[in-house]
Simulated scan of single mutants.
Amino acid sequence: MRRGLDRPTSGSVTVAGTELTGLSESRLTLLRRRRVGFVFQAFNLLPSLTAEQNVTLPLRLAGHRPAKARVREVLQQVGLAERARHRPAELSGGQQQRVALARALITRPDVLFGDEPTGALDSRTGREVLTLLRGMVDGEGRTIVMVTHDPVAASCADRVLFLVDGRVSGELAGAGADTIAAHMATLEAVPC
């Protein structure tokens, strides 16, 4: 999706009713800023900013003044309301990941891309984040695209695609964690 982030090799890419193929770089930047959220595995938090400042960064970069109530809301959603004034070095890896999630949620994106969004979280917090993401889909009509190796996280999805060497190698809909794990075990394994 280079027109989004990488260039598609075939097909089309549509986000919130907008076809990306013909958009200029500046229009794509605006679309990403307004309609797409990203939760990266590496967090990408700025160490000199507090959790609250990291969360508001996308809005500030877009020239908007974030509403304090909205900032408190997203920090509360990820269980970090009491850590708003802490810098990344003062937070655990799981807390940093939740700040990154709150930063993605602040703009109310139509699509949220998550690279192992629960990977650094303990099981209880991971469940809470998955419940939050599921609620965004069910209650707000948002789309979540998540990359994960965790069958439990994958079981929260409506549709699970399996990739082997960058190609789709299977699909399950509405499957439980045990079914997903069993399917994962049948995928072509890399020899040790």
Rank of each mutant, 00 (worst) to 15 (best):
T148C: 06
R124H: 12
T143E: 04
Q97L: 07
Q53N: 02
F43P: 00
V36M: 10
P151E: 00
Q96N: 14
K68L: 13
A81C: 10
A157I: 06
R124I: 15
G174A: 08
I144Y: 03
R85M: 12
L59F: 01
S169M: 08
G114Y: 03
V145R: 05
R70M: 11
R134H: 04
A51I: 03
R65F: 07
E52A: 15
E82R: 13
L112Q: 11
R134W: 01
V55L: 03
T107V: 15
R60K: 09
N44D: 02
L105G: 13
E82Y: 10
F43W: 02
V137Y: 01
R127L: 14
P88Y: 04
R159Y: 10
C156R: 14
L75Q: 04
G170E: 06
G170A: 12
A67L: 13
L130A: 02
D178V: 13
M136Y: 05
L49H: 03
A81G: 14
V71N: 11
H64Q: 15
L161I: 12
Q77S: 15
S123H: 07
D110T: 15
E171L: 08
E128R: 07
R65L: 09
R108N: 13
L75C: 08
E171D: 06
A104M: 04
D115Q: 11
S169N: 14
C156W: 14
R60T: 11
A104T: 09
P151G: 05
L112E: 03
L59N: 01
V160F: 12
T118R: 04
R159Q: 13
H149W: 05
A154T: 01
L163V: 14
G93T: 09
P66Q: 10
L80I: 03
V111F: 01
